[in-house]
Amino acid sequence: MKADDGVTQPGPTLVVTVRDELRRQIQAGEYKPGDRLPSESRLTQDFGVSRTVVREAIAALRADGVVEPKQGAGVFVLPPSETAPAFRDVDPDRVSSIIEILELRTALEGDGAALAATRHSAAQEEEIIEAYQRLTDLARQNKPTAEADFAFHLAIAKATNNPRFPEMLQLIGAAMIPRRMLNKEGEVPVSPDYVRLLEQEHGAILAAIQMTDPEAARQAMVRHLKNSQTRYRQQLRTGNLTS
């Protein structure tokens, strides 16, 4: 399959490969804050991919606050950002503190899922699918899932193509997934019933986004996060995440 620029159109996972390699080069100091990245045509040649892949990789780095395109000048590396401490006082020992974050996420991510349903690119959809598959694989193996859970929600936030959504989730940070905060010795184990719920609820969100159905995506996300509020209330009472 040929892209509009005549370059063979690769699978969407190449966007992640290009994004991660550019991020690695930036972190290694090959490109320093203020430096301009090579031109789009040069990156296309260097990576052997289409312009579409390069553009989406740059868009992903922009959403992460790593680079900033400037009209007519190119794409420039930004200084590392410092996360504001707005959510550092979340207390996992207080039910109200956990519920406050989940209520905020419900309002934020409901609209985010709706936007992602209509705005996502093929590459962003692939990233959401990969995150979902990793999340479910870890859950079935009874391995910690908090990081994969965060990655799934962050991928959806990025698919809004509004950088403020992923910025907000990253600002919330560790409090995004309360189960990794509830046990100082490690993530709280989950039951087989919870594993099934995890798959069902996240799967419903993914399916709605794939169908480009914004209202279904909104409802699936809101339902998931409201159910989470109920589950965490139960966990904080009993110490077991059983439903």
Rank of each mutant, 00 (worst) to 15 (best):
D111M: 12
G112T: 01
A113F: 06
T118V: 15
T118N: 05
R119D: 09
R119A: 13
R119P: 00
R119C: 08
H120W: 05
A122M: 11
A122K: 12
A123I: 05
Q124C: 07
Q124E: 15
E125R: 14
E126C: 09
E127K: 10
E127M: 13
I128A: 07
I129A: 10
E130S: 13
Y132R: 07
Q133V: 01
R134L: 12
L135N: 00
L138K: 07
A139V: 00
R140G: 05
Q141T: 01
N142T: 06
K143A: 13
P144R: 01
P144N: 02
D149K: 01
D149T: 01
A151L: 07
A151S: 09
F152C: 03
L154E: 14
A155H: 03
A155T: 00
A157Y: 07
A157I: 03
K158C: 11
A159L: 02
A159M: 08
N161Q: 14
N162T: 07
P163I: 05
R164H: 13
R164S: 14
F165L: 11
F165Q: 04
F165A: 10
P166K: 06
E167G: 13
M168V: 12
L169R: 11
Q170C: 12
Q170E: 15
Q170L: 13
Q170P: 04
L171N: 11
L171V: 06
L171A: 14
I172A: 08
I172F: 08
I172M: 12
A174T: 10
A174I: 09
A175Y: 06
M176A: 07
I177M: 01
P178W: 05
R179V: 12
M181T: 02
M181C: 02
N183G: 06
K184M: 11
G186L: 08
G186W: 07
G186A: 05
E187R: 05
E187M: 08
P189K: 03
V190H: 07
S191L: 02
P192Q: 05
P192A: 04
P192S: 04
Y194R: 06
V195L: 02
V195Y: 04
L198A: 00
Q200M: 07
E201M: 08
E201N: 09
H202Q: 00
H202W: 02
H202M: 01
G203T: 00
I205Y: 03
L206G: 00
A208V: 02
A208R: 01
A208M: 02
I209L: 11
I209V: 12
Q210G: 10
T212L: 10
P214S: 03
P214V: 00
P214T: 00
P214F: 06
E215C: 02
A216P: 01
R218T: 06
R218E: 10
Q219N: 14
M221A: 13
R223I: 03
R223F: 12
H224R: 05
K226G: 07
S228M: 14
Q229S: 10
T230W: 11
T230D: 13
R233L: 15
Q234R: 14
Q234I: 10
Q235Y: 15
L236D: 05
L236K: 12
T238M: 10
G239E: 10
N240G: 08
N240M: 12
L241S: 06
T242G: 13
T242D: 15
S243E: 14
S243G: 15
